[in-house]
């Protein structure tokens, strides 16, 4: 095949590398030798039943958990080891969005977004406010600038949380079941924002229950089962011909 023009999402040097990761909570082994790669611009969906370790995996990638074995590298930073100096660097390159939004309840929407810009990136308030306006328009919430989190619907709060992460201009965005706490109609507005992000070429890893979203948006699907990567592959391929009984059962149950 002539290499004149590579397809947009052809595997390049991976931006996220997970190698043989082991994570234990006491005697419980939650991740048992997990590994996969995500290339820049790719959207990876991690799916699986609850308790399969998928959220723990994402938290390890975000550097929120320390791992007992293996390695995780994100944007060239070594993650997952306690006291890693790369942690601070990692924060600049990776954004995380939580299931429970985790907005700061005592701050306005705008201040939620500008807090890290002024404290971490040392931007002026004006600069930061301009950036906040930019990302708020991206998620369609320009008019909620001065509102407080409790005045917003769950979907709106989650969009603010996404905007808050985006403002720091991360290279990779992590989404941890971001629509699980939302009603269906609110889920749609959050997924729309995420799809829009994917179209703009953001590298994303999302733990999700939304199979429709995974099929539509993800380039790569990682099926987790019993702390292991049970199946992995390009989305269309994987859904068309599951190799394991567990995955076909899972897909069937989610439909």
């Amino acid at each position: 095949m002539p290499a004149a023009e590579a397809p947009r999402k052809a595997p390049r040097e991976p931006i996220v590398q997970v190698r043989n990761v082991v994570k234990e909570f006491g005697p419980l082994r939650v991740l048992d030798g997990v590994g996969f790669d995500v290339a820049p611009g790719q959207v990876a969906a991690i799916v699986g039943r609850s308790g399969s370790g998928k959220s723990t995996l994402l938290r390890c990638i975000a550097g929120l958990e320390t791992v007992q074995g293996g390695s995780i590298s994100v944007c060239g930073h070594d993650v997952g080891r306690p006291g890693s100096a790369a942690r601070a660097q990692l924060r600049r390159d990776v954004g995380m969005v939580f299931q429970s939004y985790n907005l700061f309840p005592h701050l306005t929407v705008e201040r939620n977004i500008t807090l890290a810009l002024t404290l971490v990136k040392k931007q002026s308030r004006d600069q930061a406010n301009a950036k906040a306006a930019e990302v708020l328009s991206l998620v369609g919430l320009t008019d909620k600038r001065t509102a407080y989190p409790e005045q917003l619907s769950g979907g709106q709060q989650q969009r603010v949380a996404i905007a808050r992460s985006l403002a720091l201009q991360p290279q990779v965005m992590l989404f941890d079941e971001v629509t699980s706490a939302l009603d269906p109609e609110l889920t749609a507005e959050v997924l729309a924002v995420m799809e829009d992000l994917a179209r703009r070429g953001m590298t994303m890893i999302t733990v999700t229950h939304e199979m429709g979203f995974a099929r539509r948006v993800a380039d790569l699907v990682v099926f987790m089962h019993e702390g292991k990567v049970w199946e992995i592959g390009p989305t269309a391929e994987l859904f068309a011909s599951p190799k394991t009984a567990e995955f076909s059962q899972f897909v069937a149950s989610e439909l």
Binding site: A62, L64, A88, R91, R92, V94, G95, M96, F98, S100, N102, L103, F104, L115, A116, L119, V120, R164, S165, L168
Partner: peptide, 15 residues
Amino acid sequence: TQLEAADCLGLTRLQ
């Protein structure tokens, strides 16, 4: 989770 969110935004412990 509030601490985790702040951590993910890159705030130092003191901040």
